[in-house]
Design a protein around this nucleic acid. Structure first.
Lengths: 353, 353
DNA sequence: TTGTAAGCGTTATCAC
DNA sequence: GTGATAACGCTTACAA
């Protein structure tokens, strides 16, 4: 019996080494540009690599070196333009640093999230970018127990045991409500998201703060639901049925806003003549010219980039021991969906100091 | 010297085996539900797995089994809603079959595509879903040389050496132009994409066919550019400067359409009173209610699903030896962006048989 | 500057 | 039903 080389199989370092008349480790050094290699040896090895059409096996490399150079982005729905931009920011930053990214959609289900986290752990993913589906630190804890660093995006979870990149939902919502108050609106309803999700809670908190500060009641005007279009439709239906009808609507998310607009149209009401609308999240940049909603735009792409930056720092032990919280600034864009309150009788509330 | 077990390190099959008093291979069988295992043994092993918090290492598994259970989707820009939906269809189908998906953006650059293909090859990706950046079969050839199956999406490349899932751009464009012809338009300009990209070429072909059939000239009315908003803007600028001005515009892609609309507005013209517009690709489903463009909608999500189906068949050797071409039906949606030609004097072209 | 030996964590193969 | 052994392709540690 003799060694039989099957040239139909994919070449390995061993094959290349044999062909170049060197040892496998020398081939490895050439591939990785590591250590000292003489020009002649390098040339021989590179020739052999070309002749055999050799492609290094990253799996084997990762197994040995304990680094997969793969990150994962777990989000609720990549189809939401907000998360699509974020994903693009993540991909660009990761790719520039030599990492590839796995994308996972949880559809706001903690079970799916849990399944993905376990899968990614098995795949030896170096780090995870997570938009948590729930409010519990469960996934973060599981990842920490396996020494896999996480950066939490968009939403906060308590207690804080990971770096976080997000925006200030409380403050931004406050600003949005002020836009309505300054135009004389006094009955303003808030269409909320899922209770427990930090962004949902914070946005309601910002609304409540602005209303209380203006001495206005919020009873019956706050309603909770899901971050979906159908939920937005239903929530809007129910607040539009109130008497007297609110003159301002605050949609806490882009999908909710779309549902709300549909409901307003279904009621035969006009925006902004009958009802003014403000919302969180802008339309995708490419559609910006058709936008008519007054919104708080969040820097999704930059959030993705920043999160990767923090994650890579952790992976390279360049991060401080304590967890960091990066709050990126939002951008208020006032458009045609807001107008003076129809019932404003000169009693327009002015901006506080 | 004795064997020292470091419990701070991640547990392996060996650790689990030791703890359960069985051999590593038995643990492997339990994990994979393969072969015969007695209930008692299985229980012991599962207990040990739980106690140690054992997580199998997929890298090692893949190295040995030659299956990474990972697919990759290479597209030009995930930020384009058309590709976002496609990505979601891919993710859902792949995930249901136990595969994870890597997403790669090439920004229409063949160099980036090439780099990604090599990277994915190194990562032992089981199969690739490719929206080719160029017209050459280069990437497909490279993948074939390494026995990695590919399914080409959206665009055709010649010669055909892979399964393809796409729509009929020629026929769909023809239908779109007929909408204009039937409303009396005679001067219709086409804003094309990059020459060489099959969808771009096919859409112009469909346009040309409809025009020729109606006995209308196309000279000076066809212009080529990129599938971007800025290119759409520039192309529209130049055709709107023609004299006599075209009364109908055909944008061969969603981004091109957005640029065209911006140019029309910049010229102080109204849609559809002065210019009617038809385009390829619908707005994202969630924004459908604000859509006013007459479009050909392509079933992006289903295209993604179907492509994964074909790819998995290849991976499981359930596919026929010849390459398959799946043409999915498109959907014509007539909306307010088209009207009667301003210069139509009763001479409206009627539909052919 | 280059090489030897060993092992990363898993599973294929064959044996009992 | 279960186990011993080797091997997947690469790189770390140590030598020369």
């Amino acid at each position: 019996m003799y060694n039989e080389i099957d040239y139909t199989l994919m070449a390995t370092v061993r094959d290349v080494a044999e062909r170049a008349g060197v040892s496998p480790i020398t081939v490895s050094r050439v591939i990785n540009n590591a250590g000292y290699i003489s020009g002649a040896t390098r040339a021989k090895v590179e020739a052999a690599i070309a002749e055999l059409g050799y492609v290094p096996n990253t799996l084997a490399r990762s197994l040995r070196s304990k680094r997969s150079h793969t990150l994962a982005f777990i989000t609720t729905d990549i189809t939401n333009p907000f998360f699509t931009s974020m994903a693009r920011g993540i991909e660009d930053a990761a790719s520039a640093a030599g990492y590839t990214v796995l994308f996972c959609n949880t559809d706001e289900s903690v079970e799916k999230e849990d399944r993905y986290v376990r899968l990614l752990l098995q795949k030896q993913t170096d780090g995870i970018l997570l938009v948590p589906a729930g409010s519990s630190p469960r996934s973060v804890d599981l990842l920490r127990s396996q020494d896999t660093p996480v950066v939490v995006l968009d939403r906060a979870i308590e207690p804080l045991k990971a770096d976080v990149v997000r925006c200030d939902s409380v403050r931004s919502s406050y600003d949005l409500i002020r836009v309505l108050l300054e135009r004389g609106h006094r009955r303003i309803a808030a269409l909320g998201g899922p209770v427990g999700i930090s962004t949902a809670d914070d946005r309601i908190a910002g609304y409540t703060h602005a209303m209380k500060e203006a001495g206005l009641p919020t009873r019956d005007l706050v309603i909770y639901g899901q971050f979906t279009e159908s939920s937005g439709f239903e929530m809007a239906q129910s607040v539009l049925a109130l008497s007297p009808r609110p003159t301002g609507l605050f949609a806490t998310n882009n999908f909710v806003a779309l549902g709300a607009i549909r409901a307003i149209e279904a009621h035969g009401l006009r925006i902004p003549q009958d009802v003014s609308v403000v919302a969180f999240d802008d339309v995708p940049p490419v559609l910006a010219q058709y936008a008519f909603l007054t919104v708080i735009a969040q820097p999704a792409y930059q959030m993705g980039q920043k999160a990767v930056e923090l994650l890579l720092q952790r992976l390279q032990d360049e991060a401080p021991p304590e967890y960091r919280q990066v709050i990126l600034p939002t951008h208020l864009i006032v458009r045609g969906s807001v107008g003076l309150a129809p019932d404003a009788r000169g009693s327009v509330v002015t901006a506080p100091k």
